[in-house]
């Protein structure tokens, strides 16, 4: 059984899933269609309800 995981999409969900799996010891292949990861969240200024910087 191949224990690698493919994650399609490098937004916040893809990033979190990749990090969790990587920390658990799995090899993750993260594919993102845009030139960099970050998704819609990188286009946000601040996030609710804490008004933290989105990056």
């Amino acid at each position: 059984m191949n224990r690698d995981v493919l994650v399609i999409g490098g937004g916040i969900a893809g990033i979190q899933a990749s990090l969790d799996l990587a920390e658990m010891g799995f090899m993750v292949h993260l594919v993102e269609r845009l030139p960099s990861i970050g998704g819609k969240m990188s286009q946000l200024d601040k996030t609710f309800p804490t008004n933290d910087c989105a990056l």
């Binding site: 490098g10 990749s18 990090l19 990587a22 993750v28 292949h29 993260l30 993102e32 845009l34 990861i37």
Partner: peptide, 13 residues
């Protein structure tokens, strides 16, 4: 993500 040894990042793909 960029630095993690277990993450193989394939951007623009």
């Amino acid at each position: 993500v960029g630095r993690h040894p277990n993450i193989h990042l394939l951007a623009y793909a």
